[in-house]
Amino acid sequence: MTAPYLVFDGVTKHFGPIAVVDVPFDYRIEKNQFVVFLGPSGCGKTTLMRMIGGLDEPSGGEIRLEGAPVGPPDRRRGMVFQSYSSFPWLTVAENVAFGMKYRSDIGEEEKLARRDRYLDLVGLYEFSDAYPARVSGGMRQRIAIARTLAAGSDVLLMDEPFGALDAQRREGLQVQLRRIQKRDAKTIVFVTHDVEEAVFLADKVVVFTKRPARIAAEVDVAERLGADRTLELRESPEFFALRNELLHLLREAAGDDER
């Protein structure tokens, strides 16, 4: 086991009188883990993730990244949203390069090289000069992933990034994202309410209750399914067993109004 990388220390969040997030004890995420926040829609898991990014501030407690409390947003923690994830006035290649726009520590030539490398990595090289409006929704999400990687973020915060895509594109992107994460050694926090997506992607799934979001359970998926995720795995009995288990946990966590 590696040292704790991202630590939640008694984090709470209120919007006015409404408690949205309530993680009273310590919760730790290890480096280079793929962690999925699973919970009922609108439960506050997104708010918790936004607090990692510095886009929202906790009302109580703190979040630490490698020992230091997280501050305002910066390049170390990149965001990928479900919609408006790429800039329509920039071409695909310009969108990816935009990730490095505010980095003065790397030269222009290296920026170009990195841009092309990440375009290639997500399979968008041939669409370099297209505008986002002309490519599919799945490709637009890949632009966002490539931009975040090009920026050099250590932690990728992904808010239901595949939520608007059809099942087939989703599967393809999930395989690809998992591969990139292992290859580039990134820590990913991924928010979803789709149980199968959670099982397929995660090293660890954190199940949240309905609002205010509390951690109801943590399931170590890597231990049960291993690190290698292929489409065949989706049809294995182990996958289904874990999926059903998580469905039950989620139902329990969602509480009485799901009776």
Binding site: P73, R75, M79, F81, Y84, F87, F98, R147, A151
Partner: peptide
């Protein structure tokens, strides 16, 4: 858009 750009520094 604003938040993406913030996280890019």
């Amino acid at each position: 858009y604003v938040e993406i750009t913030q996280t890019l520094g």
